Structure formats: structure tokens, C-alpha cells
Simulated scan of single mutants.
Amino acid sequence: MQNILVYSDSLSWGIIPTTRRRLSFDQRWPGVMELTLASLGLPVRVLEDCLNGRRTVWDDPFKPGRNGLSGLAQRIEIHSPLDLVVIMLGTNDFQSMHEHNAWHSAQGILALVSAIRSAPIEPGMPVPEILVLAPPPIQTPRGPIAPKFAGGERKCLGLADAYRQACADAACHFFDVGTVTRSSAVDGVHLDLDQHAALGRAMADVVRPLLNPGP
């Protein structure tokens, strides 16, 4: 059994657009990925650490605990041994109270990668492989979250390219989720049920070569 930590926000938590409800584990993309890998004979345990509103390295002025860097090293310590850490963050960096751009978020990703690699894990435990996912671009925000993400579609431009370069510089793995799915047509930010399914299946293909093939 191999262990994968998914460190993310509401796009992976599985919030149903325009609601406060959550998709079930087998509907969320991390669950779809786990079940798909198991069906291919590669049993894994996917550990979800996905917090609504989480940024890469910035605080939310209205809600505590949304800085993704705070406590990350301890989360790696808690869940070790880990074979792989999958990071999908950045969307919330572009909320309307921030004036960040793609370069800023890429620097945040580099800080997260550094924290994972320097986490105080027990002697002999492996430093996990790291896979960074660029979330799909924000479309025009709609519905209740529109004020929160106003301007996000402009500020997130170039995110995948910025992440790709950051991952090359840090020698970690990268995947552009925008090549698999767009963000929800319902709210312009999150993922719909069918998009979770498509991403989970695609992620099984992406993750499989990064894991030990087993006996």
C-alpha cells in the first residue's frame, strides 16, 4: 500500500458549485484517482488535506488558517511515510482581496515544495516525490462567489506556464489540469461532478509512473 497526500483547496475538497455541499469520496477526483489505480492493480491510500479557501502562502483576512505554508511541514511529518505529495493550490491566491499574479503564486509553490522537502520526518523515512498541479483557469465568476473572485480570470493568466517553470527549477513533477478540464460553467471557479471524474481518471495515468510498481 502506497500513500499519497493531496494538499489542496475546495477544488479538491469537492464543493458543489453554488452550494456548501460536498461530493462523496468516490465522486471527488482524489477518490476517483484512488479507485482507478486500485482497479489497475496498484493499491494506494489517498490522504486528503483539502481546505476551502486555502492559498499557497498568504493569509485570508477574514478566515484563519488559510495560509498553505503554515503547518505544512508538520502535516508531512504526521502522514509519513509518504510516497507522493500532490499540490493543487493557487486559485484562492486570486481572490478579490489580493493583487497577486501568476508569478506570485509560482513563488508560493516553490515555498511549499521547500517546506515538504525539509519537513522533520523520522530517520529512514523517504522524502516524498512532489507533483504540482496547475488548477484550471478561472472563468468569469458567477453566483454567490462572484464578488470574492472578481477579477480572478485576469489575475490568473499564465499560471500553468509559471508553475511549469517553477517545477523545472525545483526539479519536481508538474501537470496542467487545464489540459483535462475547464473550471465549472456554473460558478467559473470550482469543478463539476463530471469534471472531477475526468480529472481523477487522468490523474491515475499521471501518478502511476511516479509510484513503485509493486511486486
Rank of each mutant, 00 (worst) to 15 (best):
M33W: 00
R55Y: 15
L82M: 07
M88N: 14
R54A: 08
L35F: 15
G53T: 11
T36V: 02
M97P: 04
I76R: 00
E34M: 02
D49W: 01
V46D: 09
L69G: 14
H100W: 05
N52T: 11
T91P: 14
W58Y: 11
A106V: 04
V44T: 09
P81Y: 08
R55N: 15
G68Q: 13
I78Q: 15
E34G: 04
S80Q: 09
I87R: 00
L37M: 05
P61F: 07
G108N: 09
R45Q: 14
D83N: 14
L69M: 09
D59G: 09
D93A: 07
W58E: 12
T36K: 08
R55M: 15
N67L: 10
L42T: 14
W103Y: 13
L37G: 06
V113K: 03
P61R: 13
L110E: 13
S118K: 15
I76A: 03
H100F: 15
D83V: 00
L47Q: 00
M88E: 14
I87M: 01
V113P: 08
I76M: 05
R117G: 12
L112K: 00
A73W: 05
G71A: 11
L72T: 00
M88L: 05
M88I: 02
N52C: 10
L42I: 07
Q107F: 06
P61H: 13
H104S: 11
N92F: 00
M33P: 09
S114I: 02
P61T: 11
P64T: 12
L110P: 00
R66T: 12
L110R: 07
P43D: 11
R66G: 08
A73I: 03
N52Q: 10
N52I: 06
A106G: 11
A73M: 08
D93Q: 08
R75P: 08
L42D: 04
N67K: 15
P81T: 11
G108A: 11
A102T: 07
V86H: 04
N101R: 14
S118V: 07
D59W: 01
W103H: 14
S105R: 02
F94T: 06
R66P: 08
P64F: 01
A111Y: 06
H104L: 03
G71M: 07
R45M: 03
T36Q: 14
